[in-house]
């Protein structure tokens, strides 16, 4: 593809050209996404099995979750997906300043997501709406529920693993901010931003399913 006799400094020696390097990186990221889908897939299977066994318990236990906080977190995460996409758009358009701003906003929104999640978690720790043997909540809403500790086991593992992904995503976005600021990323080479973007949208995509499955059981 490249007809230049001298190769750019961001091209690693084991690739033929810049395009091959870019396509290989994206292919690797998508292979990782496949493993992520299957990792969360096992938990979605657990959810499906237990919900099919205890439909009434899932309905009653889900009423203990805060729909408003869940919806707010959905809006925060969709907004951060947009700003992540716009960061890539800006760097493609050679607008470094806008790209940096979009990355910073994405990072702040991710922090906001974890902050809201912290408020939800701390309340549940306080009243004892916890997984398995740690469950102790006996409020009026649960006296007729058979196994609420199963619901909270699945809830904490799924949202917890998702929250861990948000935290890792924040680290990666901070790394992108550093690279962009140092001019290591530009319109000719922004592969790390593209691949981290794919990861970040996956985090959004998983939450798109977690939100209705936990907060909006009809």
């Amino acid at each position: 593809m490249s007809h230049n006799s001298s190769s750019p400094d961001f091209l690693h020696h084991h690739f033929h050209d810049v395009d091959q390097q870019y396509q290989t990186s994206k292919f690797g990221m998508w292979a990782f996404i496949l493993t992520e889908v299957l990792t969360f897939g096992g938990l979605f299977v657990a959810y499906t099995v237990y919900r099919s066994w205890y439909p009434e318990m899932f309905y009653d236990a889900h009423l203990l979750l805060d729909v408003q906080k869940g919806m707010l977190n959905t809006i925060v995460l969709i907004s951060s997906s947009l700003t992540m996409a716009l960061a890539i758009w800006a760097i493609q358009k050679k607008n470094k300043k806008l790209s940096l701003w979009m990355l910073v906003i994405t990072w702040v929104l991710a922090l906001g997501f974890l902050g809201i999640k912290y408020l939800e978690y701390s309340h549940k720790f306080e009243v004892g709406q916890l997984p398995g043997i740690f469950y102790s909540y006996m409020g009026p809403e649960v006296v007729n529920i058979d196994n609420p500790h199963i619901f909270f086991g699945i809830y904490f593992i799924m949202t917890g693993l998702h929250g861990l992904h948000v935290a890792i995503g924040m680290g990666l976005i901070a790394w992108l901010i550093y690279l962009t600021k140092k001019d290591k990323l530009h319109s000719e080479y922004y592969t790390p931003m593209e691949t981290v973007g794919i990861f970040w949208h996956l985090v959004d995509l998983i939450w798109i399913y977690l939100f209705p499955l936990f907060y909006l059981i009809g």
Binding site: G128, G132, I133, Y137
Partner: peptide, 17 residues
């Protein structure tokens, strides 16, 4: 019901929300 070792079942003091 799965009567596991959840402290839920140990007649802990009842609490409100």
């Amino acid at each position: 019901a799965i009567k596991s070792k959840a402290s839920f079942y140990d007649n802990l003091p009842l609490t409100d929300t």
